[in-house]
Design a protein around this nucleic acid. Structure first.
Lengths: 209, 209
DNA sequence: CAGCATATTGCAACAGCGTTACGAATGCCC
DNA sequence: GGGCATTCGTAACGCTGTTGCAATATGCTG
């Protein structure tokens, strides 16, 4: 056959680990395949036989980031206060993002630029999404949220707000003199309150077209 | 002195225009200074004498994107329904982002990676931010929003949600089977409702720690 | 046990990038 | 008209991701 494989699973994990470290402190742009291979005492060929390309490597890193993210969200167990669970998920979301800014950036950077096939995207996305939808569903059954909207819609709004506020901070676009950290939870609470069951719109802006 | 300058304002605008076009359809990564210079029948030196570097060029592009954004938001005139104005600003926000995805990406990509000096960032940010804060302030005076929170906080939550939902779509991370476009306005309305004056938190999640 | 076949691997080259150094070209002043 | 300061285009540097090719080392076969 041929010589023993050294481009094996162990090397794959070592490369993935080192790449994650680099991306974690200096971002994806600072990740050089040559440098990575040299650091791991191997050749660039290893990266290409194991990951296919830099995009493939980043895609694997994406899978890893998703796994950590899902793990983190899984530490939150449902309580008998679903609306509170929604808030807690939102806080954990922000905590993960702030703790691992570059992994978070990998998770939510442009997917079309780094994912070879889109086939695995929806599945991963829905996996991080489910706990939130579940909490909302339970909240609807408990009467804490309006049942007029699909739970997915309510969950998406929560996710959007969390993602938006976190992204503004991480990208350095939060407005001056205003710490997002201080009003993040209040904003989440206002949103949850707004989805309360039986809530009527504020008088005066029914039709804005 | 020297020979007549050809690296003048006219060339600067031409380069900026071409760069914007390229970034608009293929993103910042696809923008090559060599290609840009060749397309404009000039040399790379021109780009460097006019913009300093690729980061400088992108920074100028950022200024331009902000200007367009501010112009768009300025077309919305305050009405006697401030809460409705907030919704309208949110809708215009999304509309601009969807219409100019790459300019939007420039606006909200990592500032630290492309801005030579951070000195001009806060001023620009607050400029796009002010109409929203103003609308909230008027809404508070009209009793449409709680006065318990600073208008900046409420405005930030609206901005965060708009930015978050828009970013999820543009980055290809919206969950499958759910069109953000369909629930964007409803989400904004729920949030606005949640900030309604005198609103009490949903019973049962007062303390989540 | 010798030799072949073949999978595997590392080196080097390619095309492109942003950036910079430098020499040539140019128009003004004396 | 000659000297000069300024401006500009070319070419080079070091880097990137990627790929082709040659060397290598192993297991099977005769």
């Amino acid at each position: 056959m041929a010589r023993l494989k050294t481009h094996d699973e162990a090397l794959r994990l070592r490369l993935l680990h080192r790449a994650a470290a680099t991306v974690f402190d200096r971002g994806t742009a600072a990740l050089s395949l040559r440098q990575l291979a040299a650091d791991a005492k191997t050749s660039t060929t290893a990266v290409y036989s194991l990951f296919g390309s830099k995009a493939g490597l980043l895609s694997s890193l994406y899978q890893e980031a998703v796994r950590l993210f899902v793990e983190r969200l899984a530490t939150l167990h449902p309580t008998d206060d679903p609306a509170g669970d929604v808030i807690r998920i939102g806080l954990a979301y922000r905590e993960y993002a702030v703790a691992n800014p570059h992994l978070y950036a990998i998770l939510f950077s442009d997917r079309s630029a780094q994912c070879p096939s889109d086939s695995d995207r929806p599945r991963e996305t829905v996996e991080t999404y489910r706990p939130l939808v579940d909490a909302v569903s339970r909240g609807q059954r408990a009467g804490q949220f309006s049942s007029a909207s699909d739970p997915e819609v309510i969950a998406l709004s929560v996710w959007g707000m969390a993602h938006g506020l976190v992204s503004l901070v991480l990208s350095g676009n939060e407005p001056q003199g205003l710490a997002v950290a201080d009003c993040y939870e209040r904003a989440l609470r206002a949103l949850v309150t707004g989805w309360r069951a039986g809530e009527e719109p504020v008088a005066g802006f029914a039709n804005v077209t």
